[in-house]
């Protein structure tokens, strides 16, 4: 290596130029692509919500969303109402699905009142209440949408993750796991208990829907516990709203 590249001045200059180039390059890509990326995220959210209430193009084994170009139309067709619950007050807001659950969770930690979005959908004469949930798995964030009826019986669920172990924790977004939740009760004897992910309920085919348990994924204990924990802590916040539904 030539002598020129050893001097301190050169090193500092090189570092400065490099930082400027890299910074500019990244900032350019980030800002140029941001609208497209946000649009993709918006579409995905709509797809997820629709998936949870059973509007999807599933084949026999795999989970397939409504296609991208149809999703906007389907979303406005099936989702009849979007509401935001904040401290017992319910307001209608047709942009409620854009609420960032992560931000709301941080706001709650800081002592602010959290906004809880809930989407109300109609399909084949039945009403679905779809709530977003978010929590932590083994490595990173996990999140999803749960569709329920007025009695808090699960009618559909969609889970996703940022970086769970491939082949183990990542299976939470597989049909065999998500479909297990359909029909499962969130309440027991009128009280909210959530759904546990169990390894030892002697019910691997999940025939018993009222035991508040679904079968776990082997090798993914911590991810499974994360799913159970987010269902419990997030959906509990909606219980008071569901209670008002029943008296109506």
């Amino acid at each position: 290596m030539s002598k020129r590249t050893e001097s301190n001045l050169y090193t500092v200059l090189f570092a400065t130029v490099m930082v400027i180039i890299v910074g500019a390059l990244l900032a350019f890509f980030a800002s140029a692509l941001k609208p497209t990326i946000n649009e993709n995220k918006r579409i995905e959210k709509q797809q997820n919500i629709l998936y949870a209430m059973g509007v999807n193009e599933n084949d026999e084994t795999s989970a397939i969303f409504v296609s991208k170009d149809k999703v906007g139309e389907e979303f406005s067709k099936y989702i009849t109402k979007q509401i935001v619950i904040q401290g017992g007050k319910v307001t209608e807001d047709n942009k409620a699905y854009l609420i960032d659950v992560k931000k709301e969770q941080t706001a709650e930690k800081e002592g602010k009142q959290r906004r809880l979005p809930l989407f109300i959908g109609e399909r084949d004469g039945k009403t679905f209440y779809i709530a977003p949930i978010r929590g932590k798995g083994l490595w990173d964030a996990i999140w999803g949408f749960v569709a329920m009826d007025a009695n808090m019986v699960v009618k559909g669920a969609y889970f996703d993750h940022a970086g769970e172990t491939a082949g183990l924790g990542s299976n939470i977004k597989q049909r065999f796991f998500m479909d297990d939740f359909i029909g499962e009760h969130l309440k027991k004897d009128g009280k909210f208990v959530g759904i546990a992910i169990s390894k030892s309920n002697n019910d691997p085919l999940n025939k018993d829907k009222t035991d508040n348990e679904v079968d776990a994924i082997a090798g993914a204990t911590i991810t499974g516990d994360g799913v159970a924990a987010m269902i419990k802590s997030e959906l509990r916040k909606y219980v008071s709203y569901f209670n008002t539904l029943k008296t109506n």
């Binding site: 090189f14 570092a15 890509f29």
Partner: peptide, 26 residues
């Protein structure tokens, strides 16, 4: 030929990271 040897590790790491991030964003 232009990387200063003192900070070559930082430079290498930044090259990889930049590449990966750009690919990810695209």
């Amino acid at each position: 030929n232009i990387i200063p040897s003192k900070i070559r590790i930082i430079v290498q790491l930044i090259v990889v990271a930049t590449l990966v991030i750009i690919v990810d964003q695209v």
